[in-house]
Design a binder for these strands. Structure first.
Lengths: 106, 106
DNA sequence: TTGACATGCAGGTATTTACCTGCATATTAT
DNA sequence: ATAATATGCAGGTAAATACCTGCATGTCAA
């Protein structure tokens, strides 16, 4: 997983909207997705290219249409690498903070 | 949670490094963090400001020092909103794809 | 108090990003 | 074949981003 590409791809509301749209109905065409976006088709294509580069979606050509499918694997890897690791700290946060404030930084 | 701020904050290698550094040792000062960064202190401060705005870290002043603590809550919310939702699709992806390729789009 | 130290604040610049318009190509239907 | 449709490709611009330098402020220690 390329964490940089994945997080940058997720760091834009249009691209998150695209993922939500595909979550509602997988396999939509570019035209269908654009109907929900309020921007030029060409702009949407650029967003989709970034999602593809991050491997968050896959596309298939069918005739003159381009179908789009979600790939949830990178999101799972984000979870493994960036969520689980820091969740373990969750309970100890207040403890650490209190210690530091008390100057007890052994 | 402001998903935009959180994902944009995570979409930069320096800021992810800062989170990793704080995961190794919570409560570090700005100076300590900068020793591991290879950029001007002022640049690091700007990265930290974004992490704070995304609520991914909290800071406390102790004398002339500024201590930094990880806040894992937004990461957990990212998981709830952006990982679990799409994980459910995981098993059905190949199914959807096959159906579309066969033109069986009922 | 004075010097050293940790951090804050205010611009300045080069790159990246998110849009756009215009035109080209490829596929389908008449 | 021709027209309509779906998408691809090539720039162009304004805003955001990630750095930097220079200087100011606040804290500690001698």
């Amino acid at each position: 997983m390329d964490a940089d590409k994945v997080f940058k791809a997720l760091g834009d509301p249009t691209r998150r909207r695209l993922l939500d749209l595909l979550c509602e109905k997988n396999g939509q065409t570019l035209g269908q997705l654009c109907e929900n976006l309020d921007m030029a088709r060409q702009s949407a294509t650029q967003h989709i290219d970034l999602l593809e580069a991050a491997n968050l979606i896959s596309t298939v050509k069918r005739g003159r249409e381009k179908l789009h499918f979600i790939n949830p694997v990178p999101l799972h890897e984000v979870y493994e690498r960036w969520v689980r690791k820091f969740e373990r700290q969750r309970l100890s946060l207040l403890h650490d903070l209190k210690q530091e404030l008390e100057g007890d930084d052994q």
